[in-house]
Amino acid sequence: MTDRLVQALNGDVRTYDLARQLRVGMPQSPNHPQFWHVLPRRHGDMVRADGGSAANDMITTGTHVGTHIDALAHVSQDGELYGGADAGDACLGGKYVEHGVHTIEPMLRRGILVDVAAYLGVTTLDGGYEITLADFEATLEKQGTEVREGDVVLIRSGWGAKFDEGATFVGGPSGVPGIGPEVGQWLADRKIHAAGADSIAFECLQPGAGHGLLPVHRIFLVEHGIYIIEAMNLEEISHEQVWEFTLVLVPLNIFGATGSPVRPLAVVAGE
């Protein structure tokens, strides 16, 4: 018998890529090592007897660069990780064995887009704008979308449209729009699995404040075990008004790491 999932995938489906392309010089948080890519061997550097040649690559990168997911090891509060684990003791031999990114199971879940920028009728929210619960609930109502337990909730502020502007996307002087503790706690109370956004630090950053305070990271990662996905590309699904989809996301299986680059996909049935 043919599996029903295989049957569905053999039908008409459309896939949206929600990741940013990894490029040298792309905007990133100054708190993390930059992405770098070089070719140690190029075609012609070594040629086989039959005329064949091969090229290869080397990359170095922080795990919180480009579109990436935060593991529960990424943030502690008052010396504790999720579940009350001692943050110092949890790092065994330089690896976070119980809270590392290798513990995140591949995601094949209901995903929803909460397009706050579209609801408010702007291309992008202003830097430092904190999305209120009233904004959030009104957006859901207009879209006819509901948040369910186990969902992956993606929040669009429109700030992702500034990605190619480099330093503007990082938003140091201007701040960055996003949710604050009010919406963060509301989502945590609904027991979502993960949340993502189109900005550099997921949550609201006030002008000039940088990453000094990240209360939603505490609520999600430390208090509730909810994963965070940052620097997503949500422009296409916003344009297509794709509010609900199957979210497919698999982190790199890096033992003990605090995060991983990811390439999330939104999958929907075709017309």
Rank of each mutant, 00 (worst) to 15 (best):
T2I: 14
V262S: 10
G184Y: 09
V183E: 05
R263V: 11
G158E: 07
M46T: 09
I179E: 00
D3R: 08
F255D: 06
I229E: 08
G128A: 08
G212R: 12
L205W: 14
R148T: 06
Q34A: 11
E80H: 12
E236D: 13
E182Q: 13
L249C: 15
R156S: 15
G270E: 03
G66L: 01
T145S: 12
M46Y: 08
G259L: 07
K95N: 10
E203C: 11
Q143I: 05
V222S: 14
G150F: 06
H37P: 00
R4K: 13
Q185K: 15
R263A: 11
T15G: 00
K191Y: 07
V170A: 13
Q28S: 08
L221G: 11
G88W: 02
S157P: 07
G44L: 03
C91A: 04
I229C: 09
Q241M: 11
E223N: 15
L125N: 01
E130Y: 02
L234H: 12
A73H: 06
L213G: 09
F245H: 12
H239A: 15
W243S: 15
V248G: 14
P173Y: 08
P40F: 03
V268D: 04
L5T: 11
G44C: 01
V152D: 05
H64K: 11
T60R: 00
F35W: 08
P33F: 01
G178H: 04
L265G: 03
L92Y: 05
Y227K: 04
R190A: 02
N10I: 00
V267Y: 01
T67H: 01
V47L: 00
L247M: 13
F245Q: 12
E244S: 15
G79Y: 00
G150V: 05
G166N: 09
Q206E: 14
V268P: 04
G259H: 09
F163G: 03
G175Q: 08
G79L: 01
E235F: 06
D17N: 10
R263C: 11
I59H: 01
M26H: 10
E230T: 15
W159I: 02
M46H: 01
G212D: 12
I69C: 05
R218Q: 09
P27L: 08
I254R: 07
L125M: 03
L247H: 04
Q34V: 07
H43V: 10
G11C: 03
A19F: 07
D89S: 14
R14H: 00
Y129C: 10
T258L: 02
L140K: 06
G25Q: 01
D86S: 12
E98C: 11
G225F: 08
A138S: 12
I228N: 09
G175P: 05
G121L: 00
D50W: 00
V152Q: 05
V75P: 00
L72N: 07
I155E: 03
I226C: 07
T132Y: 05
T168E: 14
H99Y: 06
L120D: 09
L133N: 04
R23C: 01
P40Y: 03
P30C: 06
E98V: 08
E182R: 13
A269L: 09
V250C: 10
R190I: 02
